[in-house]
């Protein structure tokens, strides 16, 4: 089945280039958007399998668009394709529901592979993202926060994330820890899911506390 894709990026040179690369590799590029508002609107209409999201979108952040799209369109997955320096934005986007992150400097082959994996529902977990997720769990454990106790990594999950962050492939990790390839994927998936769930709970709590939940209706 052909995977349908939407590309969100405010730079025409890059956007058109990625659109062409993906079309050449058999993807159905349904739409492109240059800003967050248009991205949310158009995604609701064309309902792509995968949204490739840049985070640096001028005024509005791609994080906001990622949150709306993953909330309103459960069938659509968001893959962040962003510059390497935007660490905190990437982390926020992943917490908001993005299922993976690829740097813009990745090769076409890596990009094609990542879009396929995202469409299949697998996380795209680069070493860079693993480092950030590890750091985020540590930050939450260190910072005394009000409300919901922060999620924790199991020992196994920490081991797996650490190996991903050190550049080992899923197969190498499976070999080293003597577990199956699928189990490695599940551990990785679970670290993300816990983070996203916690983020949703925290946002909801914040909204209720500040009376924002009524405004949205």
């Amino acid at each position: 089945m052909t995977v349908s894709v939407m590309i969100v990026d405010d730079h025409p040179i890059w956007r058109d280039g990625v659109a062409r690369d993906l079309a050449e590799h058999g993807f159905d590029v349904r739409a492109t958007a240059a800003d967050a508002d248009a991205a949310v609107r158009i995604a609701g209409t064309v309902r792509p399998d995968v949204v490739l999201m840049d985070l640096n979108l001028g005024d509005t952040s791609g994080v906001v668009a990622t949150r709306s799209i993953t909330r309103d369109l459960p069938e659509t997955r968001v893959l962040v394709l962003s510059a390497s320096g935007e660490h905190s934005d990437v982390l926020e986007a992943v917490k908001a529901g993005a299922s993976g992150y690829l740097v813009k400097s990745a090769s076409v082959r890596e990009l094609v592979d990542a879009v396929h994996r995202t469409a299949d529902g697998d996380p795209v977990f680069t070493a860079g993202l693993a480092g950030m997720v590890l750091g985020e769990y540590r930050r939450m454990a260190d910072a005394p926060a009000a409300g919901e106790p922060p999620p924790r990594l199991t020992e196994r999950e920490t081991d797996v994330l650490r190996l991903v962050a050190k550049g080992l492939t899923a197969k190498q990790i499976a070999d080293r820890l003597v577990i199956s390839h699928r189990t490695v994927e599940n551990h990785v998936q679970s670290t993300l899911r816990k983070l996203q769930l916690h983020n949703r709970v925290e946002l909801a709590r914040y909204a209720i506390e500040h009376g924002l939940d009524r405004e949205e209706e």
Partner: peptide, 20 residues
């Protein structure tokens, strides 16, 4: 230290760490 290490990144060197 995070930002200082980032300068070591090249196509064959990947630098990872916390977002903050």
């Amino acid at each position: 230290l995070r930002a200082a290490l980032q300068l070591l990144a090249t196509p064959s060197v990947q630098v990872s760490g916390p977002a903050g």
